[in-house]
């Protein structure tokens, strides 16, 4: 079958010019249009299209680069802001602690002063009271002596003996002192 087809091809080939690419009549036309069209394509591409595409690619690259820079800058800024916030929080903490400490120490001082004052007053009152008690006691003792002396004098008188007033009081005094 292949032989039939090849024979047929050979037959048809023999009728026409054998090989179109080697026919020379169209060479000038081919060269003319090739030069014209290839030249046109070259000029259009090199003058207008390729610089424009190159420009776009460059613009894209620089846009991406500048966007990345901007992102990095904003990131830095955010980090700085966070640091600033942390610092101000720490400062606020320190200030709060200081204020609290100050208030506490002031209150402590106040308390101490008040306590001292009250203590002093109490001491003073106690001392006063003690002196008063002592005075009252001494007074009372004097009265007791007098009464005891009187009582002793009268007892002694009742027994029928006379005793000097001074002796009696002396004895009473010594008895009281012992008691």
């Amino acid at each position: 079958m292949l032989a039939i087809i090849l024979a047929a091809d050979a037959a048809s080939g023999a009728e026409q010019a054998a090989f179109p690419p080697f026919e020379t009549w169209h060479f000038p036309s081919q060269v003319f249009w090739l030069v014209l069209l290839f030249g046109t394509l070259y000029i259009v591409l090199s003058r207008f299209i390729l610089p424009s595409i190159g420009n776009t690619l460059e613009r894209r690259e620089s846009t991406i680069a500048s966007d990345l820079d901007e992102a990095a800058r904003l990131n830095d800024e955010a980090v700085q802001a966070q640091k600033a916030v942390e610092v101000s929080i720490a400062k606020a903490h320190a200030k709060a602690r200081e204020t609290a400490d100050k208030a506490r120490s002031k209150i402590d001082k106040d308390i101490a002063a008040e306590t001292a004052k009250v203590d002093a007053e109490v001491d003073k009152k106690l001392a006063e009271a003690e002196t008063r008690i002592a005075a009252l006691r001494a007074d009372a003792m004097k009265n007791v002596e007098a009464i005891a002396s009187d009582a002793a004098e009268s007892v002694v008188a009742k027994f029928g003996s006379k005793a000097g007033k001074a002796d009696v009081s002396k004895a009473v005094k010594s008895a009281l002192g012992e008691g």
Binding site: H26, S29, Q30, W33
Partner: peptide, 10 residues
């Protein structure tokens, strides 16, 4: 003198 006709190739 060259034939530069517009062909199917062109």
């Amino acid at each position: 003198g060259f034939d530069v006709s517009f062909t199917n190739a062109s």
